[in-house]
Structures are given as C-alpha cells and as structure tokens.
Nucleic acid binder design. Structure first.
Lengths: 345, 345
DNA sequence: CTGTTAGCGCATTCAG
DNA sequence: CTGAATGCGCTAACAG
C-alpha cells in the first residue's frame, strides 16, 4: 500500500553517501571538490566512489550554490529572441555553456532597458556565475551592477562606447564601409542608409561606415528604424516612395533588409533591377533563392562561442586576478549575392 | 583605503531585515510568504515592509529553493534552437514565464535523445518547478523520470502516441490534409511528400494526412528527411531529379520547404511554375516576397503561451490534486501564398 | 589524511 | 500573533 501518490523519491544526500562509505560528509565533500587527485587514501576514495555510484548520488546544485555562492549557471540576455539574428548566437552559447557543465538561463529584454535591468537583477539574485549580455543601451550602469556583485560579464555582438567589460563583436565600421563600397563599385550614386538606433554602437558604426564611403555624395538620405522586419519595411518605404528614389540601400541589419525587400514588393520595385539591397549579419534565410541577400557576415555562432569562452575564463580565474577587459573584433566579410547589381539607368 | 578589489557588497539577508524591524527572522518569513493578508499586527507588518524597502532586501532564491524545494524556475528543452520554427515558441514561453515571475532555463537537445535526457536530468537536479518539452522521441520514459521527481511537465508542439502529460499541439492531421487538398484543388496529381522522422508524431500525422488525401493516387513518392534546410534540400533534390518529377510537393515543415526552394533553384526549376511547394508551420520568413510560402499555420506563439499557462497551473495546483492530462489541439489554418499554383502541363 | 564544528539564507514546526 | 529551534544539502576552516 504505497501511501505516496506523488512518489517524492527522496534523492540521496551527501550524508547517505557518507554513511554508506563509512566516512563523514566532509570527506565526501572533499572527494567531490578537490579535483580528484589530491591527498586521500586510495581505499576511502574507492569506497566513496562506490557509494556514490550505487546510490546514484548527484550533489544538489542548490545547496552547493548556497554555500559556495556559485551555481555553474550563466545568464544570457538578448535584445529580442524573435529576431532572425539570435538563433545562431543563442545556440552557440548554449552549446558552449553546456559543454563546460554550465546551465543557461535565458532572458529577453525586448530592447527595453527597464526589462534588461529587471532580468539582470533577477539573474544576479539567482547567483549566476556570469552573464553574456547583448546590451540594449550604451550606458554601463547595468554592467556596474553586476560587477559590484562579483558577477562576471561579457558583451556579445554589441559593444559599448567605453571598453568596460570583455567584448566580442564584429567590425561594424569596416563592415559598413565594405557594404557601401560594394554598392558604389557597382556604380550606384543615389544611395541611402537605413540605420539602427544610434544608441547601439554597432549601428552607429555601420552608419559611420556608410557616411565615410559616401562623403563625396552630399545629402544622401538616412532613415533610422527599429531593427525589425516591420521597422525596415517602413523605413524603406518612406525612402523609396519619392520622386527620384535611391538605387541602392544599405540596411544596418539583415532583419531590416528583409523588411526592405517587402517594401520593394509593396511598391512594385524589383530587386536588384530597380533597387539594390545590402544588409548586415548574414542570417540564414538570406541565402535562400528568391532572397539572395548581399550582406556582411557577423558570424554570430563564432561570436557566441568566443564570448562564452571569455566568460568561462573569467569565472574560472582565481579570485584575485584582475585582468583588464579585452575587446575582440572579428573581421567583417562581405558576402555578395543577388540582391545587388549595377543600377539600370 | 578600500581593501576590496571585488567589493562583495554583501546583500542584506532576512536577518538584517528582522533586526531592523525589531522582530525575528521567522516573522519576516511569514510576512514574505503568507500571502500578504493574514494574521499579523498591522504595526509589525508596516515595520517589516519599511525595513525591506530601506534595505532593498530581496530573498535569496537559492536559500528559498533549498528549504522549500521549489525554485520559481521552469525549464524549456527544444529539439534545435537553430530551426526557423523555435524563435516564436521560445519567445512566447519566455515572456509568459517571466510575466509570472518565473525564470527560464534553456536546453537544446539537438534532436538527440541522449542529450535530451542529460538536459532533463540537469534541470531536475536544479529543481526546476516544471518543464516545457519539445520531445525528440515518442517514448515517455523521460517524462516518467520527471514525474517521479514531482516535476510538472507539459509537451509543446510535439505530442506523443499516448497522452502521458498535458500537451499543446496544432492539428497536424487536419493540417496535412488541408495542405494536400489545397494542392489537389489546384489540379496537381503528380504529388510528393517530404516527411519528417516518423517517430515524431506530428510528422507522422502530416504524412498520414497526405496519404489520406491522395489515396486514389497510388505510388506517390514520399521521402523522409531531417527537419533542417539541408534535409529538405536533399530530399527534394532526389524527388525532383527524375524523369517525370512531381508538380507539387508538401513538406512536413517550413524549414524543409525552404530547403525545397533551394533544391528547385539548384535544378533550375521555377516555383510555382514548374513545381508547387507547400510547407507547415508558417515561419516568419515564409511571408517574404521571393519566398511567399504556402503553409499551415502552427501558431507557435500561441502554443508556447498555452503550454506555459498549463504548466504554471499544474505547478500552482495544491499538492494533492491529481488531474488527468489534457490535450489541447489547436486548429491548423491554411495560408495560401505564391509558392503554389496550378500545374502548367 | 579524516572528522568536528559552523555556517550559507530561508521556511517551518512548535511553544508561548 | 510572535519567537525559538531545527533542517534543507553542502562547503569550509580548523583540529586532530
């Protein structure tokens, strides 16, 4: 007559292991932590090992976290999971974290600084060991918040004006220039740029890249939009729906560029015949036939991977070691597809 | 001379609050838990409230979790984050969880049952209160594993042959039929199906839907593929690269259908002129001009939302309450775009 | 090399 | 209505 409707299969604790092995909790704890090699009688070690195995014991991360103040958990906070850009980033971070025995806690700020702070606070309370942050804004107070609590941090994909933490990004300035030069080399002079929010440094850099490469062409239109398909669509529409529209547009992100493609369709313009479109990020769908988006490769997977490596390095570093923040700028590679071509006129 | 390089800003504990309010930890704890209304002198309650506010105190989730065996955390394990399908699902679950004060832990099994179990185990150890599972396989032992440990579970997007847990899915059979009927109503008779792994019930149902609606057309080719762009591409290529290729293909997922579009491009076939393509899921990119994918709407966002609701209901339900599992089947809506058209011959 | 003793921060009996 | 004591499962000095 098992009285247990919900069979709370009481998990074995370190104490059970200790008793079964004829030692103390403390000894078992040492076995668990002191990286498997140090001073401990071979016989006790063996008994503990056996007991652990027989009981199928696994230490409680909660209890361990409470007493060690470290949880083998890292937080990832992105601006908006829905964006075409994040899947690769998230996946690579998840994989790298898991491979190192860390669990991933996910937060999405929806590009809202307030929510970003809430999420960061919540993660801090849960004592994540570190955070990979795709920052919403250029202020660094959220980072200070974490640092004050001894939580490691690395910025991925979006750098800040000051190097306040380890950062892994792609070279947005160079990328912006490359995309613009590509358009110019095709012969375009009536160019336009759909920029992201200027408070996001990579977007600002891409805009600057565009400006630098078109310094000799005064008065080119620049439209700022939110980095969504709809944002890009609206911006492109207002850019194109004029008397003498641009023949080439550089979008600060592929997501926006996809919206740009929709805008062209809306207006009955053909890509690349009537207007050339270039984006930034090299999202997966850009390579589809019918899209063929010319773009700059952001290599999200690699960025996520490097960011996680850096973070784990920090986490594992001895407490005293105070290394200066490092900035890793990955090269931005131009990927030419079918959405760009010489102007027809 | 602050001796603290890493300023471990010791967070206030319940004890600090107690002292400041002139009461005991126990009383503060009651204030924190006994849903803010019960028996407690108004004056003490006020003093505690004030103390908490002044100290900016927030209870440690770790400590709370350790003593209550509940962490206000839910786990989400998906088959492969990289797939075009998951962003909406993940986002909706994340949002719903966060809104309810729960933190999301993310795992990606890479469609590997072994990794799925590892992830589930790890989540169980971390004492998540519940799990939203996009199951890799049709066996239910992973579910039993969780249930035995008193962890709530709900299946999202993929049901199992038996109703072993709360489940939220879209009607794959009806969807499969609808997509196939659509193709037939356009006049296609040389049809084909690119199916997902038969061990995934929704894929099997979609294949069955295809079969039911083409029962009068014997010998139609069906190719099984992994649900990736490359999988769909390879399957479609082998389907199309024959003497008398099909004029219409129904893919069990949009992801595979996108691969199908690539295959058509590879082979110099035009969509929909030479071959009509229909998918399943209604991923965002399907609506882009140049893609215009005809599909069945899986309404991932709504599925994720409902799944999270169900899960939280279970979690919040009084311990005794043993309700039978519920199956929620959402209607599958056909979305016709430009990738399907009457056959030309 | 192993055991003893204290916590980590909170929840939960039980008394009072 | 509030306080005192105990435990959640593990780690971390310090002894021995």
């Amino acid at each position: 007559m098992q009285e247990d409707a919900s069979p709370e299969h009481r998990r074995p604790t370190i104490k059970d292991v200790a008793e079964r092995a004829g030692v103390t909790k403390a000894t078992v704890s040492k076995y668990l932590n002191r990286a498997h090699g140090y001073a401990m009688a071979a016989s006790t070690r063996e008994r503990i090992r056996a007991a652990i195995q027989e009981l199928d014991f696994q230490p409680s991360p909660l209890a361990r976290g409470l007493s060690r103040s470290a949880t083998s958990t890292i937080g990832l906070v992105v601006a908006d999971i829905r964006s075409q850009f994040y899947p690769d980033l998230v996946a690579s971070i998840q994989t790298a974290a898991e491979a190192a025995g860390y669990t991933l806690v996910l937060g999405s700020s929806g590009d809202d600084p307030g929510r970003e702070l809430d999420i960061i606070r919540s993660m801090a309370h849960r004592r994540v060991d570190g955070v990979v942050l795709v920052a919403v804004r250029s202020e660094s107070d959220h980072i200070e918040y974490l640092r004050r609590r001894g939580i490691q941090i690395v910025l991925a994909s979006r750098d800040l004006p000051d190097l306040v933490a380890d950062t892994v990004v792609v070279d947005s300035l160079a990328g912006g220039r490359a995309a613009t030069r590509h358009l110019r080399s095709l012969g375009h002079t009536r160019l336009a740029h759909v920029a992201g929010e200027a408070t996001v440094k990579p977007f600002a850099d891409r805009a600057r890249g565009f400006a630098l490469e078109t310094a000799d062409l005064p008065g080119l239109p620049v439209e700022v939009a939110t980095s969504t398909i709809e944002g890009g669509r609206a911006a492109a529409r207002s850019l194109l729906d004029v008397a003498s529209p641009p023949t080439g547009i550089f979008f600060a992100s592929d997501t926006m560029a996809l919206g740009g493609l929709m805008a062209c369709a809306d207006l009955g313009l053909r890509v690349p015949d009537d207007v050339s479109v270039a984006g930034f990020d090299n999202v997966t769908v850009g390579q589809l036939p019918g899209i063929g988006l010319t773009t700059i490769d952001s290599d999200a997977a690699r960025v996520g991977e490097r960011a996680t490596e850096l973070l784990l390095e920090r986490i594992l570093a001895p407490a005293g070691a105070t290394t200066d923040p490092v900035l890793i700028t990955r090269p931005a590679e131009l990927v030419v597809r079918t959405s760009t071509a010489p102007p027809r006129d």
